[in-house]
Amino acid sequence: MRRPLSVFLSASLSVLALSGCRREEIQTYTVKKEPAATPVASAPVAPNADAAMRNTAVTTAEGPGLNWTTPAHWKPGPEKAMRKATFLIPGVNGAPGAELAVTAFPGDVGGPLANVNRWRGQLSLPPLAEGDLTAALNHLDVGPLHLDYVELAAAGSPPARRVLGALVPHAGATWFFKLDGPDAVVAQEKPAFLAFLQSLRPAN
């Protein structure tokens, strides 16, 4: 019994001593390219992102930002790392409300067709062909800004959902304003959303 015991004791002490040593290593591997970026919430939320980040164009798009005026009943939502801003629009009598997400990314982020189809995909709507895009987009000229917005509704999948999405090219970046929520709430908020779009101005 003595021999196995001493072997066991020395072996376990060595294991204990060695188990503390772990060094991380550099890895190289090949992966398939990811499909076009999905801007909203494509990274883990970082709740401690500095509050100042929300008002700058640093994290996601370079260049100057945009200013806007929101209706009084839109409440600022929680800060999220990928978002420039979030606004919550309450539903009636405690029913689920809608959310306006503001994001911005460098370049054209795949162009209007890819982004409209991304939103359509989120509502389980079939993608649009390129020829149908012009009819789907509504154009607005707001001060120096030239923007397009789209209205999408998915009535089939209960609860019915509606999305009002605007794409605003500005200073080499594209800003996205996406109002998403229950069909009735978003439809009711459409005038407020359009007024909000009319209030957009370059920050400087």
Partner: peptide, 11 residues
Amino acid sequence: NATTDIVTAIP
């Protein structure tokens, strides 16, 4: 490459 990325990940 148009279809694949060669990733070097440094901890």
